[in-house]
């Protein structure tokens, strides 16, 4: 998707927000804060509630339904929110506001806080791949090479073998990272199976190359490892408690 016109700047309330329909019918929430404009998905990633009905003080956006909150400048989740907002890059020209969808890697929590230079290098390593509904991305025991960032679609996970297979969660938001065994040491085999439940597009990134690149920028490497450990905790916490 390339650049789309959304509205004229005057239509956006000062330090306020409003949902618009962009060229081509895409709905988008535009928020004004100080000198800047920001564009986000118009509904809460939690339960399809219109964010326009929520609370916005010029800095923090709060969904009125279950009080998920986001930093308006980044779309990053705050407080009890479990997911970031899908954002669009904003361009203003001749009094009009345009949006451009960003690379999914820029939405990934795993890389939140790393330098622009490092991010560009990771983006350069990423390959765009599409999968039909039902395709198996990998199975338990497969050799581990890549980790993945979801762009669109939905990926399901299962662990266990044969009759002991059980569901192990699913990914459905842009920027979610999985297959992170590729970023771990001494983890040469997949420990879960991943299947595309819908037609999905992903960014595939070689784990070894990423680790090697991060070794040359230890400060960013440390951030990524911290994010990775939080991510693993979020998915595994309580999983022995059945």
């Amino acid at each position: 998707m390339s650049k789309r016109r959304v509205c004229s700047l005057e239509e956006v309330p000062e330090n306020g927000m409003r949902t618009f329909e962009a060229e081509g019918g895409l709905r988008v929430l535009i928020a004004h804060s100080g000198e800047d404009y920001f564009a986000y998905q118009p509904v809460c990633p939690h339960q399809d509630v219109e964010l326009e009905e929520g609370m916005y003080d010029g800095c923090v956006l709060t969904c009125h339904m279950h009080l998920w909150q986001w930093d308006i400048r980044t779309g990053a989740p705050m407080g009890s929110a479990e997911a970031p907002l899908v954002y669009y890059d904003v361009k203003t020209e001749d009094g009009s506001l345009y949006i451009v969808p960003p690379n999914a890697l820029r939405m990934a929590e795993l890389f939140d806080g790393v330098s622009e230079q490092t991010l560009e290098k990771i983006i350069a390593l990423a390959r765009s791949e599409s999968f039909e509904q039902g395709s198996a991305l990998y199975k338990i025991g497969d050799p581990v090479e890549d980790f993945y960032v979801l762009e669109t679609g939905r990926v399901n996970f299962a662990v266990g073998r044969e009759e002991r297979i059980r569901a192990a969660g699913f990914m459905l938001r842009k920027g979610e990272v999985f297959g992170w065994a590729a970023l771990l040491e001494n983890q040469p085999q997949r420990i879960a199976s991943a299947t595309c439940l819908e037609k999905s597009s992903l960014l595939a990134i070689n784990g070894k190359q990423t680790l090697k690149m991060l070794e040359s920028v230890p400060a960013d490497g440390f951030i990524v490892m911290r994010r990775l450990s939080s991510l693993i905790t979020k998915h595994l916490i309580g999983s022995g408690a059945e």
């Binding site: 569901a167 969660g169 979020k234 916490i237 999983s239």
Partner: peptide, 27 residues
Amino acid sequence: QVNARNRAYHFQAHDKEQMLFAGLRSG
């Protein structure tokens, strides 16, 4: 069986027992 974003849970529900209460009762 409840498939959540992070994992699946299994529990028993009695006849006439709402699914929510069966799950909460099971922790």
